[in-house]
Design a protein around this nucleic acid. Structure first.
Length: 472
RNA sequence: GCUGGGGUAGCUCAACAGGCUAGAGCACCUGACUGUGGAUCAGGGGGUUAUGGGUUCAAGUCCCUUCCCCAGUACCA
């Protein structure tokens, strides 16, 4: 008995249809990033566990989600959890790298997590980071790049949000909360979208019952502390400038609050100079983010027409991460696009069409007698830069081959049989014409006679004819 | 991970209260119709009812195990 073909939970095969769409998204992102002058980097899937599992890297939850095992040499190794920590390792290992080091990296990362819609244990991230620049100019450039990426992908209805961990630290001081609880507070603040202010207030205090009746334990903060948190959350933020005003008034008496505000206002100024508006890249004080290593600005983006996919982009400044390996403090900032989520959202929004084939032309094999001629035509088209497939299935008649082209969404078919050969011509068929017409057709003989979208050209003009179809 | 719900063909679902050989639509394959996609017509392949055990004369149906899926939670891209 053959064994059952099984897929590991939370893992996926990327079938050609998905891969074609995914690669086009990745190429679009890469083009934008190279336009900004970032350089490519790749690192191994496996790292020493100690590289990833240091204190205060991913937080307690994050560390528990790292795939870890012993290899044949009894070394403890782990699958990378993100691309940021490997980058900081690279910075420390290759001291000859230029500073600032501005790199992009795309590849899978692994997290032991409960799989769900749009959430997997292996997923692809596309990262963009600048290492060695303390100025907010670097952060603004990250935001500007994601802004350009989304526009490039045909997604204009998005909202990029940013804030700063330093602002949140000021909030902790402002509310009189013990600094050691700050990460718990951030985690709950981050849920604003889902549970609302009422839910946040409950969870900050005694806890709350969720929709399923499950009890979520609270932090046990006092009423007055929660009032201050809500005051912060209710700051009006119709624009970056107004949000900044509100923050500086609210935190007027808080020591060290100035640092975070300076960061946000610097980013605001840079964005304004780049002509990036409040509606596209906004300050959002409720933004918190889960990872422990952020030290300054933090970023996130959602698609307004596909909010159910969650954030498709997230990141921030992590000035302490490289220090773990180097001892020397190296400023760094960057962000990550969740390629799978972004792709799922794009497909749902219809901004990209799934195609099972990369071919534009199918050269059919009508009669094995002309095989060499089919090969020659195929080669001519390929040399002209046109993606062309020679039909390699069983030669069972042209009907099957056109059906194949139709199902593969290959728009153009080339046909050559005895009739054409006798006249030195080739038949070329634009299948898209028939696809449009076929809804109205009922009777087969009319359909056969019509031969929609089909015409003949002299044999030497095949490439030219295909080109003219493609150019519309 | 936790709580709850679920699992019948590739997909969507059916099968009175435990009772004949587990069915249908779609999809797929073969054929007919000029050397041509669609429609139509004729035929065909597909199932250990997720899994292992138990109760019973009899289990898709009832009980338990494991696995997987879904919703919420936690976390995050």
């Amino acid at each position: 008995m053959p064994m059952e073909p099984r897929l590991l939970k939370g893992f996926r095969d990327y079938l050609p249809e998905q891969m074609i769409a995914r690669q086009s998204v990745i190429n679009a992102i890469r083009n934008v990033y190279e336009r900004y002058g970032f350089v490519p980097l790749d690192t191994p899937a496996l790292e020493y566990t100690e590289t990833l599992a240091g204190r205060a890297v991913y937080g307690t939850e994050g560390s528990g989600q790292i795939y870890t095992f012993q290899d044949r040499d009894n070394e403890w190794v782990s699958l990378r959890y993100d691309l940021t920590v490997p980058l900081s390792r690279v910075i420390a290992l290759y001291k000859e790298l230029p500073r600032p080091f501005r790199r992009y990296q795309v590849g899978p990362v692994w997290r032991v997590d409960k799989p769900g819609p749009g959430r997997y244990r292996e997923f692809v991230q596309f990262d963009l980071d600048t290492v060695g620049c303390p100025d907010m100019l670097a952060d603004a450039e990250i935001l500007s790049a994601i802004h350009d990426v989304l526009l490039q992908l045909g997604l204009s209805r998005f909202r990029v949000r940013f804030s700063s961990r330093k602002v949140l630290n000021a909030l902790i001081a402002f509310a009189g909360i013990d600094a050691c609880r700050s990460h718990d507070v951030f985690r709950i603040l981050d849920k604003l979208d889902r549970i609302g202010q009422k839910g946040i207030a409950e969870e900050m205090k005694g806890g709350r019952l969720d929709v399923s009746g499950d009890f979520i334990p609270g932090l046990g903060l006092s009423d007055s502390q929660v009032v201050r948190l809500l005051e912060f959350l209710n700051l009006p933020q119709p624009s970056r400038a107004i949000a900044l005003d509100g923050l500086s008034q609210l935190f007027a008496g808080v020591a060290n609050a100035g640092e975070g505000l300076d960061e946000l206002s610097a980013i605001h100024e840079y964005l304004t100079a780049l002509n990036i508006g409040d509606d596209q890249v906004a300050i959002d004080v409720s933004l918190a983010r889960g990872l422990e290593y952020y030290t300054g600005p933090i970023f996130e983006a959602i698609l307004l027409d596909a909010p159910e996919f969650g954030s498709i982009f997230g990141g921030g400044r992590y000035d302490g991460l490289v220090e773990r390996f180097l001892g020397e403090k190296v400023p760094a900032t960057g962000a990550s696009i969740g390629v799978d989520r972004l792709l799922a959202a794009i497909l749902k929004l219809g901004a990209l069409e799934l195609r099972p084939s990369t071919a534009t032309v199918l050269v059919t094999v009508m009669d094995p007698q002309w095989r060499v001629e089919y090969q020659k035509i195929t080669r001519e088209l390929r040399q002209a830069g046109i993606n062309t497939e020679l039909y390699l299935g069983k030669e069972k008649g042209v009907g099957k081959q056109l059906q194949y082209a139709n199902r593969q969404r290959i728009p153009i078919a080339v046909l050559l049989g005895a009739d054409e050969a006798a006249q030195g011509i080739v038949s070329i068929k634009d299948l898209r014409v028939g696809s449009k017409a076929q809804a109205e057709l009922k009777d087969r003989s009319t359909w056969l006679q019509a031969r929609p979208g089909q015409f003949t050209v002299p044999r030497p003009q095949v490439v030219e004819a295909v080109r003219s179809i493609l150019s519309g």
